[in-house]
Write a protein that binds this DNA or RNA. Sequence first.
DNA 1: TGACAAAGTGAACAATTGTTTACTATACTT
DNA 2: AAGTATAGTAAACAATTGTTCACTTTGTCA
Lengths: 191, 191
Amino acid sequence: MDTTARKNSLKRFFKKHRRLPSYSEMLHLFGLSSKNAVFKIVQRWIAEGFLKKEGRKLAPTSRFFSLPLLGLVKAGFPILSEEDKKYLTLDDYLIEDPVSSFLLTVSGDSLHEIGIFEGDIVVVERRKNALPGDIVLAEIDREWTLKILRRDRLNNRLYLASANSKYPPFYPQTELTIHGIVKAVIRKLRN
Amino acid sequence: MDTTARKNSLKRFFKKHRRLPSYSEMLHLFGLSSKNAVFKIVQRWIAEGFLKKEGRKLAPTSRFFSLPLLGLVKAGFPILSEEDKKYLTLDDYLIEDPVSSFLLTVSGDSLHEIGIFEGDIVVVERRKNALPGDIVLAEIDREWTLKILRRDRLNNRLYLASANSKYPPFYPQTELTIHGIVKAVIRKLRN
DNA sequence: TGACAAAGTGAACAATTGTTTACTATACTT
DNA sequence: AAGTATAGTAAACAATTGTTCACTTTGTCA
């Protein structure tokens, strides 16, 4: 069992148990018989940034979870040079503040032209303010909706716009309240 | 500090350190002065499925990480009744097999009409076969590209199609190799 | 007001943790 | 073949862990 295989078995352990194994557990996981062997392996992984330690507490780094992020090069397989390789942890990338975030299933085709389709999932962050151009979860005249926030250049009023030419803009009759802004769009294509 | 506040501080701790705090750490985290108080709180959380325990090892459950998944109801704030509430863990939802998956930044507008834009990130799973209709990472006549796989009804041959009327379909001159299929599309809208 | 459950305190305990030290086996290099 | 890193074994250790027991405080409701 080489280093890569051990790293993968660690990842699978974390995926299954949602925690890192203790040194004694790694012993069996890696097929070793001395805790000190594990100790040395872990130290190497800490040095290369695969794991980290606070005091004597072991934890994964962001690289532990991350997937390689590649760019598409027409000439060949899209792998960047090792030094330029970037890694991305989806959860970190998408969810900044898990406490104030929630997900929303998109219904309707009013945002179709900006690539938000029925059935997509959007990550919404709860907040009261937004900037023109943001896609917002808003309450307009007591009706909840997902639209683009815009500011009318003439009278400086805020209104809601669709991204589908068959829907008109919505100017609030009485009130317009922002409840959250869309931070990300997610679409799953195949199981 | 009530239960919800404590749960949130636990989530923030995990978000920051990528591990659960020990009981002694929770002591300070929750503003308590007896480990036994923490012990009882944790036991309650285990009972309700927020945390779990294997032996004496504490770990978060999937609910710990998950965000509430809501549907948009025009009449009011889009929260489903407690029993119907669904939770989704993004990482679990998007990445089935972390070992064979990677991310790709989309370049070009050839998939624009199916809502995949330049700069979007797609989750690609390495594999050699795909079905017509799948969005594939393919090598066509030694050129790498991201397109829709289709089968010509007349001659039964596979070819690649764009989702943008200004691009023609691509019929392979010599060879067409599938290297992976797109499982999900991700777009980040605002920092 | 009194009763009773829920929430927290404080101290003690065995088990397990990560770490250290000393030694052995395996693999590489020149 | 000799020399030298690298990888693994074995045993011992203090520190910290999760747990238990007995007790006190706080809040709730009849």
